[in-house]
């Protein structure tokens, strides 16, 4: 399966999606002008991945900041993961960033089955 490897910029996150190496990670800042356009390839990738996923999919979110348009797309990603068996999320937040911790908790409440683990750094 193709590998997605995007370098982070000042307004878009670093994204690695690599099925063979079992790397699934979004990190950094997400405030693109057009969040739907930016995340479209990620959602397409997950649709393909869903047809033949690994036994385990541990998806990491290590976001420093995201805007509200991105939050909608992050929920779309989580909703896709919610339908992949063996998928779980590790939600990283900076130890003094209560807002990011709370954001992760809220996302976890918005999906059905997807397990969340919270880790501070």
């Amino acid at each position: 399966m193709e590998i997605i490897n995007l370098e982070g910029t000042e307004d878009t996150p670093k994204i690695i999606l690599d099925k063979d190496k079992a790397l699934f990670e979004i990190s950094g800042r997400s405030l693109p002008e057009d969040a739907a356009e930016f995340y479209a390839p990620i959602l397409e990738w997950l649709d393909k991945y869903k047809t033949a996923p690994n036994v385990e999919t541990n998806f990491s979110f290590k976001l420093e900041y995201f805007n509200t348009a991105s939050s909608k797309l992050i929920l779309d990603i989580l909703s896709k993961l919610d339908n992949i068996s063996g998928a779980r999320v590790t939600w990283y937040y900076h130890e003094d960033d209560e807002d990011m911790e709370e954001a992760g908790e809220e996302f976890s409440e918005l999906v059905e089955n997807l397990p969340f683990e919270f880790k501070s750094y």
Partner: peptide
Amino acid sequence: KELYKEIIKNGELSAKGGAGLGFI
């Protein structure tokens, strides 16, 4: 918090790409 969750869950992105969540 409830309003935020309701809109993020049920809202659609506008034609301009807004989530309707900015003021909240």
